[in-house]
Amino acid sequence: MSEIVLEIDGKKVTAREGATVLEAAASAGVRIPTLCHHEKLEPYGSCRLCTVEVEAGGRTRLVVACVYPAADGLRVRTRSDKIDRIRKLILELYLAHAPDAAGLRDLAEEYGADRDRFDKEASFCIQCGLCVRYCAEVKKKHAVGFVDRGWRKEICFVPEIAAETCWDCRECFPLCPTEALQAAYVFVEALKFPREDPPGDGAVPERS
């Protein structure tokens, strides 16, 4: 497989052909923030947080690093005033949905995002699709999917599949940046297949 050489933040970086800008940057130790990216999953490009500037043929463009293919001679800038402004705005929009999400807090601090900039619209899900894609691509269970579209889009479990598989897997739980997924799961379980005797493994915390 042939190799390509590109420039990321002024550094020469060698990458294999077909790699994304994000992969090339990671191999050179340059960190680009991501929310919807996962190594085991196909690139998705929904959160736009990994936006970077690329320069090719004298033109500068904004692209998302997790899907944009690295190319020979490409010049990439991963931080600039413009990029920081964009990331700040994206984070502020997400914070309107999930103001207290642990997965957003550090990023918000790094980019100076104001969690109160937009009116709260607490859906808690930022539609990164990690849960849906992990269940489909890695586990091949398809227990959770999206329904509806636009601002009404939300995740939805298929109760029959969830009842059989989810509790023993739960691999998607730690992936969710906002914990909206866990909430949705507990909700569907309570409504559709309530547990007769709650397991004693600490999953349902004791009340004191």
């Binding site: 849906v132 489909a136 398809h142 227990a143 959770v144 999917g145 999206f146 939805c156 298929v158």
Partner: peptide
């Protein structure tokens, strides 16, 4: 086709 896809 998985039901999640049909639902979507």
């Amino acid at each position: 086709v998985p039901l999640t896809r049909i639902q979507h």
